[in-house]
């Protein structure tokens, strides 16, 4: 659907050049929600603008359904852009037009007959839940409502692709959730491919199927949400994952370990897939003469698959603990926590 074929974008200013996007290779499949995450300045905004040619690649090419965007004639490009909706962090609505006319605007620019515009706008406002707001102006709406108008406007021309440029970054967590739910419906009901950029890992976790991590113009890691979240490889990725998934060992536990009076047996257990649903810890304490003390951890869901991370202390006779560990290792990942290791 969208293919970045070794795309590089260089900005020249006053004799110095800056590589905003550096040799990016990326494929987004039809109907997928693909998230690109990175800190500000990583080149995400430039990357997303290369898709609808708001930015032109310096080298490499962006292919939409195998067609090189840069090869299009001006009129063809305008035609193609109508098939790519875009929403923005600051909404970018026309302040002088009401909700109805904002949504109708791209259709009216394309010269669609009034009657058709009317039925399309009515339908799409219904879809985003703003039918009762059609005569209001943007300055009378909340942030979440403005973004709904933005989404309605982007969908008006029935695009194949929706680009989301930090679409929830200006919204509070609750509103973010509702906008993300709406984006999921956009994909599910209209089968629109969504490419989004964000600096919020919870946004990626919430809606994306695939994620790519961007740093200094390059993609440093990409994969399915489950793979990247359960097993991040690059340090930046680990930092991003850590913002939403607690996997660091807290101070208080490290203090327990340095307790000299008795030796403690503290382990990190990683649950993946089905094992999350099983009462493993309960079985351990029933089957062996050990007590299990959960010190820290989190169990969450990634793309509908449960994923967990627990730090537990096993108390009891040395021999029983060894047996318990042996049992645990048959079904989950287990790693002893020491004072120096993470």
């Amino acid at each position: 659907m969208i293919h970045f074929d070794h795309v590089t974008k260089v900005y020249e200013s006053n004799g110095t050049s800056f590589k905003a996007v550096n040799d990016v290779e990326l494929k987004v499949e039809k109907g997928e929600i693909f998230g690109v995450i990175g800190f500000s300045g990583a080149g995400k905004s430039t990357l997303i603008r290369l898709v609808n040619l708001l930015e032109r690649p310096t080298s490499g090419s962006v292919l939409l359904n195998d067609r090189d965007m840069a090869s299009l004639k001006k009129s063809e490009l305008r035609e193609q852009r109508r098939k790519i909706g875009m929403i923005f962090q600051h909404f970018n609505l026309l302040e002088s037009k009401n909700v109805y006319h904002n949504v109708a605007f791209p259709l009216s620019l394309a010269g669609v007959p009034k009657k058709e515009i009317d039925s399309r706008v009515t339908e799409i406002l219904e879809f985003v839940g703003l039918s009762d707001k059609s005569t209001q102006y943007p300055d009378q709406l909340s942030g979440g409502q403005k973004q709904r108008v933005g989404i309605a406007r982007a969908l008006a021309t029935s695009p194949e692709i929706l680009l989301c440029d930090e679409a929830t970054s200006a919204l509070d967590p609750e509103t973010t959730k509702s906008i993300l739910d709406l984006l999921k419906r956009v994909r599910d009901e209209y089968n629109i491919t969504i490419l989004m950029i964000t600096h919020e890992m919870n946004v990626i976790r919430e809606v994306c199927d695939q994620v790519a991590v961007m740093e200094q113009g390059q993609l440093i890691e990409q994969g399915t949400i489950f793979d990247v979240f359960s097993n991040p490889k690059h340090q930046t990725t680990k930092n991003f994952v850590r913002t939403v998934m607690q996997d660091e060992i807290p101070e208080s536990i490290l203090r327990l370990l340095s307790d000299q009076e008795r030796s403690r047996h503290i382990y990190r257990i990683t649950f993946v897939n089905e094992t999350t649903g099983e009462p493993i810890l309960s079985r351990v304490s029933k089957g062996f003469d050990v007590e299990v003390n959960v010190l820290h951890g989190q169990i969450t869901e990634l793309q509908g698959v449960p994923f967990g991370n627990l730090i537990v202390e096993l108390q009891g006779e040395q021999s029983e603990i060894l047996k318990a560990i042996h049992y645990l290792q048959t079904s989950v990942q287990l790693k002893e926590v020491t004072a120096h290791a993470g």
Binding site: L54, L77, M86, F88, S96
Partner: peptide
């Protein structure tokens, strides 16, 4: 707002349309 102009460009508007249907109406007041 340059963002409004950018949004209109992304819709496939011509420069002419951007001037007469975005810049002037938005700046009218």
């Amino acid at each position: 707002e340059p963002g409004v102009v950018e949004a209109t460009e992304a819709m496939g508007a011509t420069s002419w349309q951007i001037v007469f249907r975005v810049l002037i109406p938005e700046a009218l007041s």
